[in-house]
């Protein structure tokens, strides 16, 4: 397998007295797409937030690009090249599309950096609304903007929290297209997902999380091909 870019071992995290993660371990290879699947409340979002430093990890190791990042501030982790697209998008509604992209901009080292123009190729819908306030965009457009904004930081890997949530089928296809494009650009993607078809369409490997622990790890193809296994793991 290719070189590991992100490695999580025994990650524990929670909010106040509530424990959410009980030792999550997973890895992400350079340029691959892995899906973290599970039900509501299983710990998908918390896993991504804890990796990103938005929820302080209580125990465990997080290695990214050869460095221990557990306990670092979110902005330091982002600067190392780990991008994050939150579940609820959290775009800056007062700012225009172009301004939202500007907030995400960080200089790339060595390779061809993302520019608004290149991103408009990936997300053609955004090109026409460059100067529109983000508040006046549809949910799907906001989701695209959220991804584009993160890409402006030229990340090596991206944590993508529930990208398919609440999107119309047409937009879903565009979104899958965008994830595959990121993969072609060499960006590793760890996405949390409840929509199995979407995950199956984009991911190489799958993790299933339940009650804060990884219960299954394997190739997406195997999970997709074996309905019994899928039913057992995901209770779909």
């Amino acid at each position: 397998m290719a070189e590991t870019v992100l490695e999580v071992e025994g990650l524990r995290a929670g909010y106040g007295p509530a424990e959410i993660l009980f030792g999550v371990s997973l890895r992400l290879a350079r340029g691959e797409v892995a899906a973290l699947m599970g039900r509501n409340g299983a710990g998908k979002s918390t896993t991504l937030k804890a990796i990103m430093g938005l929820v302080p990890p209580r125990a465990g190791r997080v290695r990214f690009a050869g460095r221990d990042i557990a306990g670092l501030a979110a902005f330091r982790i982002a600067r190392l090249g780990l991008g994050y697209v939150p579940e609820d998008r959290r775009i800056f509604t007062d700012l225009t599309v172009a301004e939202n992209l500007e907030v995400g901009r960080r200089s790339a080292e060595g390779r061809d950096p993302w520019t608004p123009e290149r991103l408009f190729e990936v997300f053609p819908n955004l090109a026409s609304m460059r100067h529109r306030r983000a508040a006046a965009m549809s949910g799907g457009e906001q989701q695209m903007l959220a991804i584009a904004r993160t890409l402006m930081g030229n990340p090596e890997a991206v944590l993508l929290d529930e990208p398919s949530e609440g999107l119309a089928p047409v937009i879903l296809e565009l979104m899958a297209e965008a994830v595959l494009r990121m993969k072609r650009e060499g960006i590793a993607v760890l996405l949390s997902e409840q929509n199995f078809d979407f995950a199956a369409a984009v991911a190489d490997r799958a993790y299933v999380i339940e009650r804060g622990e990884i219960r299954y790890e394997g190739s997406m193809a195997a999970l997709d091909a074996d309905p019994a296994l899928r039913a057992q793991q995901l209770a779909l």
Partner: peptide, 8 residues
């Protein structure tokens, strides 16, 4: 916080 998550 989102601004922070974008590396600022």
């Amino acid at each position: 916080d989102m601004v922070g998550a974008l590396g600022v």
